[in-house]
Nucleic acid binder design. Structure first.
Lengths: 186, 186
DNA sequence: GAAGATAGGTCTTGTCAATGAACCTGTCAT
DNA sequence: ATGACAGGTTCATTGACAAGACCTATCTTC
């Protein structure tokens, strides 16, 4: 029996949702998508996930319409959230808020989410206290909070997140994806 | 390596939350708690989960403060949500709403959630359109929707849920917990 | 007070998915 | 042609999950 698949005996929307996003790693992959990660090797570096597992999860997510895959002639490919994938934002924010509230060392939040329009920090339900709305993920900015451990990870994705970063926009990790002549480094 | 434990390499509240509630079955156990299920055998009947797995999950949830266990001299025990556990409601509702929106057969919702004060059906973000608030789980009533399959399951819990039922209140499944003389049936 | 039912588990064994390492393929740059 | 990079696949090992047998305590009934 698959791990988080086939809660066959349950006629319940929660069970159906969990069949897709309830497997180990899946929500962290989706979190990274919101952060702007889109390339196979970036997921790999940022998550410390086995390649085969990542490959299988991405395939399943594409298959079920949570992600779509853009492939380029260079051999590169991008995994991007679909509308359905973006609709997972409230769940992800809920997990973050709950984890921060009940299971974090007491040094303040490690990530701060704010509304791009007014720079107000979101409340525990993901709503902007100033604008009185729940901003869509695309209008959210993430930045390190006081509880963040300064150099906990050393991958390119984490470095890019040291500065405030708008959700769903591509991270400028190392080099800005190779253009014909821009490749002079080693 | 445990299955949804130790995302060690992630300093992230989402990862911490998933270490606790991201394992297979865990969110469905918590869902049942919101429905009013509190006894070992009721979880067993309603979830079709292996005993050992249920036992291990309940222990972990009690251990981490999501549930508390009340034990009676009769040998019975109740598993109840703590405040921390009740704080998982937005996540659970999010999963239900997402599952219903994107991964349900098109027959309308199988469960309908409404606000106990005004009987208004909650919107996709769990908010009551009449009262303009997000009701706490204890003020939510669940009932079968048009998409529910009439007799999909035959356990006592499901039978009790055929009628509208208020969250976090004990289900009247079979007999109302054995009192000294009330035991005449077989 | 023995026999059976009920509640709430533990133990044992087999299976199947996750892991980690090695290998493969197609571009690009030199 | 040679090497580096991106994006994978294949394969052997391990460990969590599943299923069912077994255990213990309490209560009920005779």
């Amino acid at each position: 029996m698959a791990l988080a698949q086939d809660y066959d005996q349950q006629d319940c929307p929660v069970a159906r949702a969990l069949e897709l996003v309830g497997e180990r790693w899946t929500m962290l992959i989706i979190r990274d998508c919101f952060l702007g990660v889109s390339r196979f090797n970036d997921f790999l570096d940022h998550l410390d996930i086995p390649k085969a597992t990542l490959s299988s999860r991405l395939a399943k997510l594409v298959d079920s319409g949570v992600l779509r895959r853009e492939e380029y002639r260079t051999g590169q490919s991008n995994y991007l959230l679909t509308k359905q994938g973006e609709a997972l934002w409230p769940i992800l924010y809920g997990l973050a808020a709950w984890g921060e509230a009940y299971h974090a060392p007491r040094r303040g939040p490690r990530r701060i989410f704010s509304h791009v329009n007014c720079t107000t920090v979101l409340d525990s339900s993901g709503s902007c206290p100033t604008c009185k709305i729940v901003p869509p993920a695309s209008d959210v900015v993430i930045q390190p909070g006081p509880g963040a451990i300064p150099n906990f990870r050393h991958d390119a994705v984490e470095r890019a997140l040291q500065k405030p970063h708008r959700f769903l926009t591509k991270l400028q990790n190392s080099e800005p994806t190779p253009t014909p002549t821009a490749r002079r480094r080693a």
